[in-house]
């Protein structure tokens, strides 16, 4: 009897858990699916469904067909008109896409390089104040970007790189998050391996590049993915440090959706998420492994 009760409870728990998980997963998935499906709707349909949301006082007294928002997942008529408009008739979007690539790729690359070297130092240095130094470096990670925005602006102005892409790239290169992740990962490397390498005559550089960094590959991939995602979606730095609209990435324009082309916004969002998605798919297991290793979890 007890056994039967236990199995029922177990099953019920499993079911409830499943339902909850399913519900939450739906909730998480819904915006993405919604975005993708709505990108295949025509402009008139989108305007009819969502126009009232973006109505402003300058609409000239017009009233939309639907006064309330009508969330639709299945288009009345599937059309690629918006994709055509975005990809073939709107070069601005494509230029903004490449602006984002030009800004984010250097940040990722240089941040990884700096993080590797810094984390090696933090992992191997046994001197005094190591922890304090590490803490001081990491505490910045907890600060919101707005706290460091003004100093960044002033320093950029001082260096004369304001209004240039370097004003965004340079602060990004020295982000502490990557250092934190990689340091944790490197500290898990057994000392004996390092000693053995030293005994074999390897120098610090060789130990770093040939032993430590390959060992932290998973953490490295996770760092790359997380940094890419972070900066690919960034908006504030570009708005503050870059005033030239021509240098703005696409994330800035996606944040300015208005009564203009809502349908184009869906289409742009779909295209904008593709690089992130591909990167994630490519390094998915590394990401999981990296985060878990940095959290100290053992496989």
């Amino acid at each position: 009897m007890k056994k039967i009760l236990l199995s029922v409870r177990k099953k019920a728990a499993i079911a409830v858990t499943f339902i909850l998980v399913f519900a939450f997963s739906l909730l998480f998935l819904f915006p993405t699916v919604f975005t993708i499906t709505n990108s295949f709707m025509s402009e008139s349909e989108i305007s009819a469904n969502y126009g009232a949301v973006f109505a402003t006082g300058d609409a000239g007294g017009k009233t939309y067909i639907s006064e309330k928002v009508n969330l639709k997942l299945i288009p009345d008529m599937v059309t690629f008109q918006q994709y055509y408009t975005v990809l073939f008739k709107s070069p601005d979007y494509l230029l903004k896409f490449w602006n984002a690539v030009i800004l984010v790729v250097p940040i990722v690359v240089f941040q990884v390089i700096v993080a590797c070297l810094a984390s090696y130092g933090f992992a191997r240095y046994r001197g005094k104040g190591r922890e304090f130094l590490f803490f001081a470096y990491i505490v910045l990670m907890f600060m919101p970007y707005q706290v460091t925005l003004v100093p960044n602006y002033l320093v950029s102005d001082f260096l004369g790189i304001l209004e240039t892409r370097w004003a965004v790239i340079l602060p990004g290169i020295f982000s502490p998050f990557a250092v934190f992740l990689l340091t944790k990962s490197m500290r898990r490397i057994p000392e004996s391996i390092i000693e053995a390498a030293r005994l074999d005559g390897a120098g610090e550089w060789q130990i770093c590049t040939k032993i430590c960094i390959p060992s932290c590959r998973s953490s490295l991939f996770s760092v790359v993915i997380l940094i890419f995602i972070d900066y690919w979606n960034m908006v504030e730095q570009f708005l503050v440090l870059l005033t030239d609209r021509e240098k703005m990435p696409l994330s800035v324009f996606l944040s300015e959706i208005n009564t203009g082309e809502i349908s184009l916004a869906f289409c742009v969002a779909v295209i904008y998420m593709i690089p992130t998605l591909l990167l994630f798919l490519y390094g998915e297991e590394y990401l999981v492994e990296g985060i878990s290793s940095s959290g100290g979890l053992k496989d």
């Binding site: 073939f88 709107s90 593709i274």
Partner: peptide
């Protein structure tokens, strides 16, 4: 497969970047 997809995607974006303004 993912690598190929990424390469194709970037290549298409690059080509469209060059010609979209002209088409417009």
């Amino acid at each position: 497969w993912i690598k190929n997809a990424a390469i194709i995607f970037l290549t298409v974006m690059l080509v469209l970047t060059f010609f979209s303004n002209t088409i417009l």
